[in-house]
Design a protein around this nucleic acid. Structure first.
Lengths: 240, 240
DNA sequence: GCTCATTGACTGACCGGTCAGTCAGCAACC
DNA sequence: GGTTGCTGACTGACCGGTCAGTCAATGAGC
């Protein structure tokens, strides 16, 4: 925390900022160089190709997630699950985080065309589903959860949260409204009170907790709070 | 069906094939031109810019989905919902469909950077969530479903299916295995029997049906079959 | 029924800009 | 003096878009 950051770290930070600012599709080596106040040539000095650099960045990001998840491995299962769910909530002011996740989603779409990216995606997928499965298993053992199909539940939860995130970040703003073509029966529409309308990811996360997690809780176990989950995972430090 | 297709149709078909073959990020005007055996100049004759062409294509695709959904508007609610869920199932041999949806996902990631694309995405989002909300409303009215929060349920269902699709198409192949890092307790692992391992989207669709839809069915209503749902939406014609 | 003008569909060649990657060289440290 | 870290100038490929022009069909004038 005291000595100056290594060149590698500075470059990774440059990639991070450049991706946020331009998205993956539009980002150039020059953008990245500018963002970390280095020359484009330097990037090529450390990484032969743009692909090398981006794969390294993906690796860097996923490794960070692994650490972040590991840090909570000993939390009690119910809270840990709420933390996981809350991790996917994007609040209305999380503009940078949204921009970054757009770039990540762009990267994901390159999976089918790029073996090395795909490897990282598989790793990330394993991490996410594996983490939920792990939480569920230890929760079942501890008597927190009923005996459900662990893999199936993990897949269901992760898919739901991922889908909600995709919707929120690609449609920007996130909130807009609730009704589609149907006028609906008046619930959750009016933000007439003081509180701001919850974001899309938050609404889905809440629904997932009540509709997917709640039913698998063992007798007498209380539904963990999403709110607590959100800041349990956010607390530590910033760079997602 | 008898007269030759219009130039516009041929071009849309060219875009469709070119996107499947190259993805959105890599597709060039030349690729599209080649794919419909026309010259690149012709594309610019009909559409001023590449962006114009792709926005027109998105519009074309969504309009098609609207029609497809409308065609089932009078099916009974439970079957209609199963049809919707089944619509998101990608079987193992649906390579072309997967490739196309990768391109669509790439297009979606451009929403934040492109107003006109975003408009189409909003339209598509409304269509999907609105359709489920509509199904739920008419189902509640008909006594098929309990009185649930329609918007919330629609968002939950759509997010889940979308997330499952994203995972399957970006990770290619789709099936691989079930276990992550935990070795798991032996279920759904061995395809020792004759049947092929179900795809990821299929597993999640089944789970969504059992874990999200089943609990909202009114007393005595049977869970509709996913299988029937899948081919109710697929039957009609081919071009998704 | 023939000619000629006009138009819409379409093409090939070309231009300008962009961007990943290269290379020769420079400074600093051992 | 060699190695490491780093830079600016440069290059080659690619791609969106333009433009001058071809060709077939249509229709008016005689």
């Amino acid at each position: 925390m005291s000595e100056q950051p290594s060149a590698a770290d500075e470059i990774m930070d440059g990639v991070y900022r450049a991706l946020r600012a331009h998205g993956y599709a539009d980002v150039t080596m020059q953008d990245i160089a500018d963002e970390c106040s280095k020359s484009k040539s330097l990037l090529h000095y450390h990484y032969d190709t743009k692909e090398d650099l981006l794969v390294a960045f993906l690796d860097y990001v996923i490794t960070d997630s692994e650490a972040r998840i590991r840090a909570h491995a000993d939390d009690p299962p119910a809270e840990r699950l709420a933390g996981f769910v809350g991790w996917f909530v994007f609040e209305a002011d999380a503009v940078d985080r949204e921009a970054f996740h757009i770039a990540l989603l762009e990267l994901r779409t390159q999976g089918p065309f790029n073996e090395r990216i795909r490897e990282q995606l598989v790793r990330s997928d394993r991490l996410l589903r594996g983490t939920v499965a792990d939480i569920l298993e230890s929760g079942i053992e501890a008597g927190t959860f009923r005996e459900v199909d662990v893999e199936e539940t993990a897949a269901l939860v992760v898919a739901t949260l991922d889908g909600a995130r995709t919707r929120q970040i690609t449609l920007i703003g996130g909130t807009d409204e609730g009704s589609a073509d149907s006028e609906s029966g008046g619930e959750g529409d009016a933000p007439a009170d003081g509180l701001p309308e919850p974001t899309y990811t938050r609404r889905v996360a809440e629904a997932a907790l009540r509709r997917i997690v709640e039913p698998i809780l063992a007798e007498g176990v209380a539904l963990p709070s999403l709110e607590a989950g959100i800041d349990s995972m956010t607390r530590d430090d910033d760079a997602e």
